[in-house]
Amino acid sequence: MKYLVDLGISKDIVDLLDDATCYNMKINEKKITEIILYLKNIGINNLDELIINELRILYMDFEDIRSAFNNCNQKEMVELINNDIVAIEDIL
């Protein structure tokens, strides 16, 4: 799971993931990397919290994620999410 650490996620957080989840995330490295880079791009910075509380986002379709962010007030949404990760549940 080195690629997660390379993308900026803390090693401690990655270590907490269980076996099956790790395998599935490893298989989907490309797709998950795309999602994480997109989120970073629009300004989301609490990726650790994403892994802890909202890991399900990384299993979703990239297109669903992108259209959700395009169909809302993106700037405000990103700010809300950066404050408290659970705000992402409003759109996804």
């Binding site: 803390s10 910075n45 609490n46 650790d48 919290e49 809300l80 950066n82 404050n83 408290d84 990760i85």
Partner: peptide, 17 residues
């Protein structure tokens, strides 16, 4: 709290960065 519904925290509470 962040928004007026008081159901979200501000970043310095819940954001590790």
């Amino acid at each position: 709290y962040y928004d007026k519904n008081k159901t979200r925290y501000k970043g310095y509470i819940s954001n590790s960065t």
